[in-house]
Structure formats: structure tokens, C-alpha cells
């Protein structure tokens, strides 16, 4: 029902641009998942291929808009506020509260696995 509402708008535009039907592949999904550091199962990859395909087909209509592309993103009329690049010393209890959140910790450090390859 609601989908047809959008087709209505699409038809309103006398635009004969070729609609590209997306076929995002499992390999592409795997590449994206690697970039995003997310482990996926094979079943999830299949599902996501279909879902992302349908979303891309939907958002593809923005390519039909006629406009002079201005690349500067605008969010508002406010500008960045800078402060002096000075370190703020946290009270010890705040530091402890932050450290307490870390899953692995050694003394006053957050612990991670060794990142240099061993050979």
C-alpha cells in the first residue's frame, strides 16, 4: 500500500533515467562486514544481501533528483567551538569509575591482546 504511494511520486517525475537493479553479492557483504568488524554467519550473510539490496533499490531514487551538487554538508548555523588543548586531570574516583568499565584491566591500564605478530 505505502510502497505504491512512492511509485506515484516516481511516476510524477518525467524522468527516464534507467533504474539500476541492485544485486549486492555475498562477497560484497563479506567485505563490508570485514570493514565494519562484524562477524556474520552464512545464513546472516544471505539475509543481509536481500535486505540491503531492497534498501539500496529504495534509496536509489535520490539519483533521479535534478540538482546542482553542492558538496558541503550543512547541519546548522553554528560553528565549532575550540578550547585550549590542555589536559584535564580527572579526580581519582572518576578515573577508577572509567577503568572499572573495562572488560580486561591490569592495574591502572586497560588490557588488550598483543597486537604485534610473534615470530
Amino acid at each position: 500500500m505505502i510502497i505504491s504511494y512512492f511509485i506515484y511520486f516516481k511516476l510524477q517525475e518525467s524522468d527516464f533515467a534507467v533504474t539500476i537493479f541492485f544485486m549486492i553479492t555475498v562477497t560484497e557483504i563479506e567485505k563490508l562486514a570485514t570493514l565494519a568488524r562484524i562477524k556474520l554467519t552464512d545464513a546472516e550473510k544471505q539475509g543481509l544481501t536481500k535486505e540491503i539490496d531492497s534498501i539500496l533499490t529504495y534509496i536509489d531514487q535520490i539519483k533521479k533528483a535534478t540538482l546542482d551538487i553542492d558538496h558541503t554538508p550543512i547541519v546548522g548555523i553554528v560553528h565549532n567551538i575550540f578550547r585550549e588543548d590542555e589536559s584535564r586531570v580527572l579526580p581519582p574516583e572518576d578515573r577508577e569509575a572509567l577503568l572499572k568499565q573495562a572488560p580486561e584491566r591490569e592495574g591502572d591500564f586497560v588490557a588488550v591482546k598483543k597486537i604485534i605478530a610473534q615470530d
Binding site: L32, A36, R37, I38, K39, L48, I52, I55, L56
Partner: peptide, 21 residues
């Protein structure tokens, strides 16, 4: 990979992957 794979739900993964694309 393990943490984000286990921690994020379906819609969150979908949007993160879509945004990455």
C-alpha cells in the same frame, strides 16, 4: 569481530553495513 558480532542485533548490523557501503 567476535564482540560486535555477538553484541549488535539485526537492525544495527544492517545499518552499520549499509552505512559502510
Amino acid at each position: 569481530f567476535e564482540t560486535r558480532g555477538a553484541g549488535f542485533g539485526k537492525e544495527v548490523r544492517r545499518r552499520v553495513l549499509l552505512g559502510t557501503y
